[in-house]
Computed example of a mutant assay.
Amino acid sequence: MSAELQSKAAKLFADRFGTVPDAVNFAPGRVNMIGEHVDYNDGLVLPMPVREGTAVGWSRVGGDGFEVVAADFGEDDSFSGEPDKPGEVSWRSYVRGMIAESELGSGGMRMLITGDLSRGSGLSSSASLCIAIGRALAQAGGVEIAPVDLARAAQRTEHNWAGVACGIMDQMAVAAGEPGHAMLLDCRDLTYSHRAVPEGWAVLITDSGVTRGLVDGEYNIRRAQCEAAAAALGVASLRDASLEQVAAAGLDEVTRRRALHVIAEIERTRDAAGALATGDLAEFGEILRGGHVSLRDMFEVSVPAVDAVVTELQAAIGAEGGARMTGGGFGGAVVAVLAADRVGELKRATGREFLRVH
């Protein structure tokens, strides 16, 4: 956590509650390098944490009441005992969901939430919020919780309190990621390893300018289409399917394209981990470019404004690196990977602002 964000959370807490917090907990956002829409298909993904994230200042209070302030919204929430679901999905849904799903809340607390992640940018601000809340609850209760268990509680919060049938990539990357490393995560058994990003590479993020939303239904529709494809192929998940099976199955065109994306994307993730290990920037860039085409044409989760940003970045980067949309789609961020000594050149060529991950 940056010292600035920690100080900000502590100051805002003191301004609001008139006392210093007992502690401040932090969780980062994440960028997914490759492996999009495969986590809920038991696939392989390659995310990494970003520097920005969510900070929660907190203190214990008597009783079982919670008083929570979302400083960036100028909003608050309070309740006692077992939380009820709010009337509509908002930041309150994630806070209340984590308290209920993690089973870590053992007494009353005051919390103040602030962060420096752009909401709707595809950098997993919701997972960052959930994990930060979970860490605060655990520390307040004197409980040790494994990253996998924290991630599962955050996933249940998304499912049961926000209505998003997400996989577990975001939550695992936020809960267990290491700075400067990509996490090769097997979403079937949640085994993972940290893969160092070469020092000579730069990983950048830029906002497409289109705020994305997953609760509009499209994300859940894509998951249902993948489940239908797996059922038609007679496999437990698309992780177990092959391109040959899809070709022989007589699927309708939409279901076929969804399946082809997932199968190929899992293989792209394996190849990307190999390119990281060998430092092959040209191969890694080619994988990113192929991933974006598949998300645009086969999975149909990109939008023209995002495609335009990707095209602009790829033209400026050339063969030594690449760019693609990142996150669930329908807007949000674009990730670019290139030689570190060419970052200034890319900024001059595009005039764009970037967050630097590595």
Rank of each mutant, 00 (worst) to 15 (best):
G74K: 09
V357N: 01
Q139K: 14
M1Q: 11
S302H: 04
C226W: 06
V164R: 08
G213Y: 08
A339E: 10
R239F: 04
I205F: 08
R356V: 13
L123K: 00
Q245C: 02
D72L: 06
E345Q: 12
G97L: 06
H292Y: 08
A275T: 10
K11S: 15
G344H: 11
G108K: 06
V334L: 05
L129W: 11
R289I: 11
A229K: 13
S193Q: 09
N32H: 13
D186F: 10
G321F: 13
L355S: 10
E345A: 13
V343R: 14
I221W: 15
D76W: 14
R239W: 05
G290P: 05
S124Q: 00
G327F: 15
A196P: 11
P28S: 03
R135C: 00
P21S: 00
R110E: 02
I205N: 02
R268Q: 05
S121G: 02
R296P: 02
L355C: 03
A277W: 11
L129Q: 07
Q245P: 02
R270Y: 05
G120Q: 08
G329A: 13
K347M: 07
G105K: 12
G318C: 04
G43A: 10
F330A: 04
G217M: 04
F79H: 05
E244P: 03
G180N: 06
P47T: 04
M111N: 00
A275F: 09
T191N: 07
G74W: 12
S121P: 06
H181K: 11
M298V: 13
A259F: 13
D216R: 15
I113H: 01
M33S: 09
A14Y: 01
T255M: 10
D64E: 15
G274F: 08
G74I: 13
F73I: 07
G81R: 01
V357Q: 02
S193G: 05
G57W: 10
F284S: 07
A136P: 01
T191V: 10
V38L: 01
A273N: 03
G274I: 03
A224S: 14
D76T: 13
A236S: 07
R195K: 08
L214Q: 00
V334F: 07
V301L: 01
P83N: 01
V246R: 07
A27Y: 04
G74Y: 10
F26M: 08
S78F: 14
G209Q: 03
P28H: 07
Q6V: 13
A9D: 00
D42R: 06
V148R: 14
S93P: 02
A9P: 05
M298W: 15
R239A: 01
D170C: 01
Y219R: 09
I168G: 00
L276W: 10
E227Y: 11
T191H: 09
N25M: 15
A272D: 03
G200Y: 12
V148E: 13
G209T: 07
V89M: 05
D15Q: 12
Y219G: 07
G53M: 08
G65C: 15
M1L: 12
M33C: 14
R256H: 12
S80C: 09
H358Q: 10
D170M: 03
A70H: 09
L190H: 02
M111P: 00
A132H: 01
Q139A: 14
E144G: 11
D271Y: 07
F13I: 03
N25D: 13
E265N: 10
S294F: 14
V174P: 00
F13T: 00
P304M: 06
V164D: 02
L150Q: 03
S7C: 08
W58L: 07
V235I: 00
